[in-house]
Write a protein that binds this DNA or RNA. Structure first.
Lengths: 202, 202
DNA sequence: TACTTACTGGACTACACAGTCCACTCATGA
DNA sequence: TCATGAGTGGACTGTGTAGTCCAGTAAGTA
């Protein structure tokens, strides 16, 4: 769990280390990221790292939490408008546009961490799962709002649709990452949208 | 690219090394898999490894190819019947059953390798992408057969549906891996199936 | 000023790992 | 029987890395 810093300076240092670690992990992978490089980037000395974190795993756990926040906070504005059909379309367009910017590279940071650490460390897996849970809950809330407002029929199973939509996003990102081409994400999202659209009133 | 062994004994040794490496990689991850452990598992000595492969990366490339084959050959019987609605349903049930057996652990081996190595080595990324391509082509062939036989309407865009369906599979596997629960895969597949079903003749 | 606690710097250790090296085996063929 | 060369065994090297250690500093308190 690492030490809880009791001063502001400490808190900032800890935060700086996590941010640097997240960058290095994104570039080199979780196992390829060395503490030396994290320290150099932060910048922070060896003993600062071990002052704020028990060991590398503990640091990676903090990185996982920070990754959840980065991914979800980055979409917050879009999540806020998921309660209308137009908002849903804008969200999907934004995801594709985001991937296009990066040339198909990278995929979803949460999924990447999961693939690298999920089977090795159960605490980290649980953290990343909670990230997906929050993401899915935001989608579900949007769909539920559309049911309430009558944009979707009451028989729409929002839990199922939200789960299936997030799966389309994740799968689309995986395929696009493999092919360095956002087309797969576009198609996956179009599939998810068309499924949701089939629950619009006639 | 490593040496092409000219004897049967050599070929078998090479194959044994790849199989052992694939096991170790599945357990410890691509970077966590040490050549010592691969050698111990094969069994094969240090110099055998470097006789058949240029370096660790070259070995991992062979593992990626073998992983493609394992995943796709394992589904071949199911792929062969993807040309009917019943076959499609059986395929999706088999995927969920397979994941249930493993308690939600593991996810898709191709996607796992991609997450670990895709951004680090472009040759490996390309190999894994070709695995997804083959997978998607098999689904597309099945859907096309359903269009031909009249089980799907002619206006069904099979390229889009195949891509979107594979994305649902991959995304469902990611979410299920995170949650250690096959429900997400079940929901994702139900979404994909319902989308396809919407193109059945009325 | 003296004392205490929180925090910091960076040298140091132990080790695991990729990759090298060379002597050896053993089948094949003259 | 010897020569050849593909294939093999495993000790060895250098390096990068996680984790330890302790002396030092800054800031707060008596």
């Amino acid at each position: 769990m690492g030490t809880q810093p009791s001063t502001d300076r400490g808190r900032l240092t800890r935060q700086r280390i996590v941010a640097a670690a997240a960058e290095v992990v994104a570039e080199k992978g979780a196992l390829g990221a060395s503490l030396d490089e994290v320290g150099a980037r932060a910048p922070a000395s060896r003993s600062q790292l071990y002052h704020y974190f028990d060991d590398k795993n503990d640091l990676l756990l903090a990185v996982a939490e920070a990754t959840n926040d980065t991914v979800l906070d980055g979409q917050q504005d879009l999540f806020d408008h998921l309660g209308t059909w137009d908002g849903l379309v804008r969200w999907s367009d934004a995801l594709v546009a985001f991937l296009e910017e990066r040339g198909g590279k990278g995929g979803c940071p949460i999924a990447n961490l999961l693939g690298q650490l999920g089977e090795r460390d159960d605490a980290i897996r649980a953290v990343l799962a909670s990230g997906f849970d929050r993401w899915e809950a935001d989608i579900r809330a949007g769909l539920a709002a559309m049911v309430s407002s009558g944009e979707l029929r009451p028989d729409a199973d929002v839990a199922w649709l939200a789960s299936s939509t997030l799966a389309s996003v994740q799968g689309g990102l995986v395929l696009s990452q493999a092919r360095r081409d956002p087309l797969a994400l576009r198609r996956a999202l179009d599939g998810a949208l068309e499924l949701i659209a089939s629950y619009r009133p006639i």
